[in-house]
Structure formats: C-alpha cells, structure tokens
Simulated assay, not measured.
Amino acid sequence: MTSAILIAHGSPADPEPQERAMQALAARVRLWLPGWQIRGTTLALPGALEAATKALPDALIYPFFMAEGFFTRRQLPKRLAAAGMKSPHQLPAFGHDPELPALLARTARAAAQTHGLPEAQTTLLLAAHGSQVSRASATITEQMAEALRQATRFHVVTGYVEEDPLLHHAAQILGPALCLPFFATRAGHVAQDVPQALAEANFPGPLLPAIGEHPQVAPLIAAALTRATTHVFSGPSFSV
C-alpha cells in the first residue's frame, strides 16, 4: 500500500485556506516518499474528502489532529464509511506520534537560542485547544508537557483555549518565556485566540508557529506511513 490521505479538521467558516494548506503538506510528504500517491484534505470543505477517497480508495488514512477523540474515533470513520471506504487503515493522530516530543523539545530549544533565552530560566508555555466535554486534548497535552519536563530544563506549563487553566491565565508569566502552540494547523485558534490571550496577559516572550507547521513534520509523517506499511507499530511513546 503506497497511497495515503492526510486529513485535518479544517475551518468550516473559511475552508479553502486550510484545504490548500493540507494539499501543500501532502506535497512536502511526497518528497520523502518517492512513488507514493498522497493527498491532503479537510473535513470542512464540502466534497473534498469524498474526492480524495475516490481518487485513492485504498489509501492509508493519516489524521492530522492533535488528539485521539471524537473526530478521529467517531466523525472521521463515519465520514470515510459514507464516502465508500471499507475498513480503511487509519493511523494514530499526529499528536500521538512517538517522535513528536523530540520535535517539540528541539523546537523550543532552537527558539530559546534564537531569542537569547537561557533554557533553565525560561518558562515554556504549551498552548492547546482543550475542551469542556472531552479530556482527550488535555490528556495528550499534559503528557507532552511532562515529556518536555523530563527532557529539557524549561519550566513547562500548559494553557488552554477552551478549558482551565485558560490560556490568558496561564500566560501571566514573569521572566523569560516562550509560547509553543500544540496545534496541527494555523486556523482560527492559532491565528486569533492564542495571540489575543497572550496579549491580554502581557506575555513577555515570543509566540512560535504551531508545531504542525514545523518543516520537520513532513518527514515525521512520512516515517509514520512507512512504519504502517511494514506493520511496525510501537504504541505512543514520550521519550525524547
């Protein structure tokens, strides 16, 4: 099996930009997997998922989501079945990739060095979505935060857009700080809600791009797809 569909939630209010972003991500992943057919799409743009599954009916499904929750376990399988895919092979969500903690650590360290911030004296704020109805987002975020505490010298804290500790409270930090958004795409939360919360809190440090925008995400996805084709599955690991 050498085809895959990368699927993100997208933005229902303005679906086209995220659809283009997923297509661009698919193109970058193809650079690491010569000979593969890879498409990127979203759930938000009407007809887009159906077009992708029609073009690649036997594709691996890669959920470009941060948590295994309602959308990956219920909504996405339902949409795939409605599109005619029978028993698709769906990989774990991006946020559960075993290589993601290491990428987070490298990203934070590089940013601290760029901005002249001493790691041991810097607070790393991991900003995430959260939810009032599900613990999925908070659970994986807190696991990532603990992995970063074990692997780095940052003082790591978490803040959420939709649950406590709310981001504008968590961001009230004195001293050197960085904010790293634990999001897959640059949609409304990353583009608007996160910067607004940091401004409200007078956050003292830089806001980094969402981790899903990192250039090393494409090879990370390519490696996950390769593991899937060779049936090498090691459950989520948080070692760095």
Rank of each mutant, 00 (worst) to 15 (best):
S3M: 04
A4P: 12
L6D: 10
S11L: 09
S11I: 06
A13D: 14
D14V: 08
D14W: 11
Q18D: 11
M22D: 05
A24M: 10
V29K: 12
R30Q: 15
I38V: 15
R39H: 09
G40Y: 01
T41H: 10
T41V: 09
T42H: 11
L43H: 03
L45H: 06
G47C: 09
E50L: 07
A52N: 11
I61Y: 00
F70S: 05
F70M: 12
F71A: 12
F71Q: 11
R74V: 13
Q75I: 13
P77K: 03
K78Q: 15
R79W: 10
A81Y: 06
A82D: 14
S87I: 00
L91G: 01
P92G: 10
F94I: 10
F94S: 09
H96C: 11
D97F: 09
P98C: 08
P98E: 02
L100W: 07
L100E: 12
A102P: 01
Q113W: 06
H115M: 03
Q121T: 02
T123L: 03
A127H: 05
Q132W: 00
S134Q: 07
A138H: 14
T141A: 14
T141N: 05
Q143E: 11
A147N: 01
R149M: 02
H155Q: 14
V161T: 04
E162V: 00
E163V: 04
P165Q: 14
H169P: 00
L174I: 06
G175V: 00
P176K: 10
L178M: 01
Q192E: 12
V194K: 04
P195N: 05
A199T: 11
A210T: 07
E213A: 15
L220V: 01
L225S: 08
H231M: 02
S234K: 12
S237R: 15
F238P: 01
